Simulated assay, not measured.
Amino acid sequence: MSDAAQQAASAAQALQEAATAAGRAPSVHNTQPWRWVSVPQALELWADRSRQLHVADPDGRLLTISCGAALQHACLALRAAGWEPAVHRLPDPAHPNLLAQVTVTGHHNPAAQERRLMQATEQRHTDRRPSAEQAPPAQSIELIRQAAVAEGANLHPLSGDGLDDLAVAAARANEIGLADPDQREEMGYWIGGRRAAWTGVPDDVVPEREPHTDVPGRDFGRRGTLAVGEGHSRADVYMILFMPGDGPKDWLRAGEALSACWLKATDLGIAVLPLSSVVEVPATREVLHRMLAGVGQPMLVLRFGMADPDQPPIAQTPRLPGERVVREGRFPKP
């Protein structure tokens, strides 16, 4: 085999491994709504609409954000493995489910930070329990914000009246969601109970009771088995992840930013909880939009807090095996 052929084979293998590593990315309700397709010298990221929350997320905003997080994981895996990725987002307007195409343009000398962030993909998780009564360092929050900015997004901090308005909006979003029987049924499929294998949110990561927090998290309409201490997350930092626009490319980039800042937070020892219910409801999403005072469009609210050292480790949510999400050939087009 020639040197060129060996390099092409090595690059193809790296792309396959990156797609598998991307399976550790966060997604709404752990739906993992992506499919990777290996084509000659490239990797395609497709939205899998069978895993879309058609009631809570009819436009596919959260689905696309989830896929963006997987895209960032894949690119990080390539850089950590010594390859320079190139991303073409939404490459085919005729096929909107094709979200991105990833190729490699050459070799890359991995930085120590990239290797650490790659390790963070295995440690990152969602913890709905109260954080420690210690505020995250301001310098760490700024580094997290810079990670989002590097992906084309930004983070807007909330305090005072803004935090009060967020708490009211989050509670209202929970009320609206639980009042909708279709949404309750949809949550019932993905949260505990009956759901697709290797996906969804198991009972052991759902709190056994409502945690004490300044801003309520999502009310799943059921209790899990995750023990919750008596602490109150008063020292947490709440920020709106926002983008300049509100179209599919913005959603995809928002997911990349979510992944980047979450992994940076994990590397810094800071726990992250995404609050997505407040952006699912148009009325409460508009509240967030007004908080941004015209500088951008809200994608998610993120809670940053120091992990409570007295809490036991939390279980990892299940993940689809690589053979279920990575394939060769073409993904079926609508």
Rank of each mutant, 00 (worst) to 15 (best):
A4M: 08
A9R: 07
L15D: 01
E17V: 05
E17C: 03
A21C: 02
G23V: 02
A25R: 14
S27V: 08
V28Y: 14
P33S: 07
P33D: 08
V37S: 13
S38Q: 14
D57S: 12
P58A: 03
P58C: 05
R61F: 00
C67S: 05
A69N: 12
L71T: 00
Q72N: 13
Q72G: 02
A74I: 00
C75E: 12
L78K: 15
G82R: 11
G82D: 01
A86N: 08
A86W: 05
V87K: 06
H88S: 14
L90H: 05
D92S: 06
Q101H: 07
V104S: 01
T105C: 04
H107W: 11
N109W: 01
M118A: 11
T126N: 06
T126V: 06
P136G: 10
S140M: 11
L143H: 09
A148F: 05
V149M: 08
A150D: 15
H156N: 05
P157T: 06
S159G: 09
G160W: 04
L163P: 00
A167E: 10
V168T: 15
A170C: 14
A170M: 11
A171Q: 12
A173T: 05
I176T: 15
G177L: 12
L178G: 03
D180A: 04
D180R: 02
E185D: 15
Y189M: 02
I191R: 12
T199I: 11
V201H: 12
P202Q: 11
D204Y: 07
E210W: 15
P211A: 00
D214S: 13
P216T: 12
P216Y: 04
G217T: 03
G221V: 09
L226M: 07
G231K: 08
A235I: 04
M239A: 10
L241S: 00
F242H: 12
D246Q: 10
G247E: 04
P248H: 07
K249R: 15
W251L: 08
L252A: 05
C261Q: 15
I270Y: 07
H289T: 15
M299C: 06
L300K: 09
M306V: 07
M306G: 06
M306D: 03
P313G: 05
P318Y: 02
R330V: 13
